[in-house]
């Protein structure tokens, strides 16, 4: 068949549509517990396993998002995003103008870099009123994870992890690299079951300030971010 002008218009229309759809790429985070999505209700999340873990709060900062292709950085943004497991509207991050770009790896920070930590008051997701800033000692809290487990011999069996710290040797910032199979939507799953069954909750259950333990737990958390 010889292409007619009509066909060409259709082709052009098709191309534009693809462009428009892909112009705004998305990066989504899915907090999970094992295979289940972690959906925090007022009473928190109750695991279906026998471990009786509940999770009442899970928030973390994502920053410094970069896309890489075969060892070369092809895209980056400088924004800071607070992901809150109790607010699904925070799960999706729009990545602008990535439609012409090929990439096979994503790199981002779990937490807030040290420069931002010492630069004074900031707005948006970095506003201290978001509850992710330590008051008695300056610094962002990169991650808050709170819940209960019968293993914790604490008040109400609670565990509270407020992970942060930007000074060496207690710099808790983690850089996460994930290979991507296709250049479609980027979906990152965070399996808290892997994390919480990998630590001894009877010993480690209260981390509220910068410390070596907080750095170690941040590192462990960074390992349960995955592409499924």
């Amino acid at each position: 068949m010889i292409p007619t002008r009509k066909h060409l218009y259709l082709l052009l229309f098709g191309l534009i549509c693809t462009g428009l759809v892909q112009a705004q790429g998305t990066l989504s985070f899915h907090p999970c517990y094992g295979k289940d999505f972690l959906q925090l209700t007022d009473s928190g999340y109750q695991s279906k396993d026998k471990d009786s873990i509940t999770i009442s709060l899970f928030r973390f900062y994502v920053s410094g998002i970069e896309l890489w292709n075969d060892g070369k950085r092809v895209w980056e943004e400088k924004n800071y995003h607070l992901i809150n497991a109790s607010d699904t509207s925070t799960f999706k991050i729009s990545l602008s103008n990535i439609y012409t770009i090929n990439y096979n790896k994503i790199i981002f920070n779990l937490g807030i870099d040290s420069t931002t930590n010492v630069s004074g008051a900031m707005g948006g997701d970095l506003d201290p009123m978001k509850g992710m800033y330590w008051a008695w000692q300056s610094g962002y809290i990169n991650v808050k994870l709170e819940g209960t487990s019968p293993l914790c011999k604490t008040r109400n069996n609670g565990f509270e992890f407020h992970l942060g710290g930007y000074h060496t040797p207690v710099n808790a910032l983690q850089t996460i690299e994930l290979p991507l199979k296709s250049s479609d939507k980027i979906e990152v799953f965070i399996d808290l079951k892997q994390l919480l069954t990998n630590i001894d909750l009877s010993k480690t259950n209260q981390l509220m300030s910068p410390s070596k333990e907080a750095v170690e737990l941040s590192r462990k958390l960074s390992k349960v971010f995955e592409i499924r």
Partner: peptide, 16 residues
């Protein structure tokens, strides 16, 4: 020296 920037200073007494 727990507070690293003048902007963040007020947070300490507010929440103490």
């Amino acid at each position: 020296g727990a507070v690293n920037h003048l902007d963040m200073q007020a947070l300490a007494p507010i929440s103490n």
